Amino acid sequence: MPTHPVVLTECPRDAMQGLHEFIPTATKTAYLQQLLAVGFDVLDFGSFVSPRAIPQLRDTAEVLAGLDLSRTKTRLLAIVANRRGAEQAASHPEISYLGFPLSVSETFQRRNTNQTIAEALADVAAMHELCERTGKTLIVYLSMGFGNPYGDPYSPAVVAEFTQQLAALGVRIVALSDTIGASTPDLITPLFAELIPAFPQIEFGAHLHTTPTTWLEKVQAAYQAGCRRFDGALGGIGGCPMAADVLTGNMATENLVAFLAGKGEELRLDSEAFEQARQQAMQLMIS
């Protein structure tokens, strides 16, 4: 079993990016400031990508400039889709993590970042070197990590092969992403149970998408297999529009926190700030 503590990432970026109505910059900043008060380990707060691709997050730099980071332990994560975005993100000293989606599906890599997998891996190498130079940490999200709808090759061996390439580049954090909600305990448990001991130099995370009735079996399967790094979004808001079930969304942070607390994990969250943030999320993104 792993010796490292639980790492909890709140993902408002993933929750907001699919919303059609633009959230004003000041409103966005105030919500993120409330999330910083909760005490999450990591806040996936924004992205440096083309505003044409994700118009909702075109103001990430402005939002960052408006945040007060003087009273929080939370570290900031920004998603990037190419080297240019990585260079923009790395220029901000307030950002600790750069996240890049590398797909194990060739079709999805082309659709998501307009690259081949080979081109994306070359970007990963360059981004890792950039992070090393600038004091950041690269997190690689293995998109379609539990299967894909395109008929592209998929198996645990494929995921292990990608992980081997990332390990060779020096990547130290890899998150398996359940992009379309395809994961089941029968997939989750053996995959983490194989990867974690095989790559002890890598910290593995789970970015799971679930329905309201499948969240427990999924997080339990990952936890029992040794995963201790989890992503969630308050209210389970957001996720992938390609999921077959319209109820599929992000793992609800409320559920994650309840599960981990039940396992005796010390999360050190401010419960009052958490509830205020949860209420803000409902008003901001559902009402």
Rank of each mutant, 00 (worst) to 15 (best):
S177P: 05
V42F: 10
A26H: 13
L67F: 10
N114Q: 15
A182I: 04
H209A: 01
R83N: 03
S105L: 11
R71I: 03
A168E: 13
P241G: 00
D152F: 13
T210G: 02
A120I: 00
P190C: 01
P241F: 03
K28H: 13
I286W: 07
L142N: 10
H209C: 01
A258D: 11
G147C: 11
A65F: 07
L269E: 12
Q88G: 00
M282D: 14
G181P: 05
G85S: 03
A120D: 00
E132F: 11
G46L: 05
P12I: 03
F162W: 07
Q283K: 09
A125Q: 15
Q280R: 15
L35A: 09
L102G: 04
D152R: 01
V257T: 08
N112K: 09
L77Q: 11
E119L: 11
A167H: 09
A118S: 13
A53T: 06
M251P: 09
Q276E: 09
T9H: 08
A243N: 01
V174R: 11
G46E: 12
A182C: 05
E203W: 11
Y150Q: 04
L169N: 05
E129I: 01
P5T: 09
T113W: 09
E272Q: 06
V6C: 05
R278M: 07
A61G: 08
L166G: 13
A118C: 12
P2W: 07
L19S: 08
D14N: 02
E272L: 08
R228N: 15
N112S: 04
F45K: 05
L169G: 05
F48I: 06
G85D: 04
A122W: 06
Q276W: 04
A258V: 05
L102E: 08
I237R: 10
L77K: 11
S96E: 14
P185E: 12
